[in-house]
């Protein structure tokens, strides 16, 4: 195992960095897209159920199928990394729209009314009251999306762009466990690490969720 890692250090690092890029760019894009959509789903209640249904359907499409349908829709080359990024962005948006909407809906109406009564205008109220209160739910959703994305990237290896997934296909071809184990370990570690980072960010951003309530 160690020998394999030492001998293929460059290949592994390249796969890892591609993996990180393919997994995390969609997270950022997805979050940026989902936030306004989720907000609209709450602001205009009639949008909520249709949007959720569409999200649910998109999320149920298997990744390999989505990776291969997307070039047909947006006209990219079938082996382009953009397909992976777009597909994972679609999943992220599909998952986060629901989370954002549910997070915002979970904000107690009494709190928003109190904020308005004290003179908050809508935009400022959103950023200073509703968003912070909904943040724990949203970040929990972000954790799910991040971990899922990281494990999904490797499927891309079947169409030639899969980060650590390349180690799996190579291991298969050579009937050799070392690259497969290295790939799995790195992928899981990356997921755990990103998860941890979001947890730490959440602790920092929402200190009130950590204090023990008196009841």
């Amino acid at each position: 195992m160690i020998d394999y890692v030492i001998a293929n250090e460059n290949v592994i690092l390249a796969a890892l960095s591609q993996h990180i890029m393919l997994a995390l760019v969609p997270i950022v894009l997805g979050a940026l897209i989902a936030l306004p959509i989720g907000f609209l789903a709450v602001r205009y209640g009639w949008l909520y159920h249709p949007l959720l249904n569409v999200s649910g359907l998109l999320y149920s499409i298997p990744s390999l199928a989505l990776f291969l349908i997307i070039p047909g829709i947006i006209g990219t080359k079938i082996l382009s990394p953009i397909n992976i990024i777009v597909a994972l962005t679609v999943y992220t948006v599909a998952l986060l729209v629901r989370v954002v909407a549910d997070g915002l809906r979970s904000v107690d109406g009494i709190v928003t009314q109190a904020a308005s009564a004290m003179g908050y205008r809508r935009i400022r109220r959103f950023f200073e009251v509703e968003l912070p209160i909904a943040l724990p739910v949203m970040l929990a959703g972000l954790r799910v999306a991040t971990v899922a994305n990281i494990s999904l990237v490797s499927v891309g290896a079947l169409i030639g762009v899969g980060g650590l997934g390349a180690l799996f296909t190579r291991g298969l071809q050579l009937r050799y466990l070392d690259p497969i184990i290295v790939g799995i370990v790195l992928s899981v570690l990356l997921a755990v690490l990103c998860d941890l980072v979001i947890v730490l960010v959440q602790r920092r951003l929402t200190p009130w969720t950590r204090v023990k309530g008196r009841s």
């Binding site: 490797s154 079947l158 899969g162 180690l167 298969l172 790939g183 899981v188």
Partner: peptide, 18 residues
């Protein structure tokens, strides 16, 4: 958490080679 972070292709490859 474990199930979600496990790369499916990795798991399949692992089992096939094993």
């Amino acid at each position: 958490n474990v199930g979600r972070s496990l790369p499916t292709l990795g798991l399949i490859s692992f089992l096939v080679v094993l």
